[in-house]
């Protein structure tokens, strides 16, 4: 069925390989930065969310490595790297 799937289900169709490290981290002390909240809007995988304390949280599983959050938030807010070689998403179609 190609109805609306919900993100979890959609991301579940992809091949992801486990990574030892979180390749993107929010810089300490910047969790409430208004600019960082933009990541919630731009991430196509919906991995950013705001918790009850108003802090932005990032779930790294399901990352498409598209680079959008780095372009939206910049290196000032995000420690951004690609996953280790051979880890992370492996597109079968692309």
């Amino acid at each position: 069925m190609s109805e609306v799937l919900g993100l979890k289900e959609k991301l579940g169709r992809n091949v992801f390989k486990h990574s030892e490290h979180r390749h993107i981290n929010i810089k300490e002390g910047r969790e409430k930065d208004p600019q960082l909240k933009k990541a919630v809007l731009v991430c196509p995988a919906g991995l950013y969310s705001v918790n009850d304390n108003g802090e932005v949280e990032l779930t790294i599983d399901g990352c498409l490595e598209c680079g959008t959050c780095r372009l939206a938030c910049g290196p000032e807010l995000l420690e951004w790297n690609y996953p280790d070689g051979g880890a992370g998403v492996q597109f079968r179609f692309g």
Partner: peptide, 14 residues
């Protein structure tokens, strides 16, 4: 156009 299709992958890129 996509009725009964199977979503096989979800990808993205800047």
């Amino acid at each position: 156009l996509i009725k009964d299709g199977n979503t096989a992958e979800y990808s993205g890129h800047a």
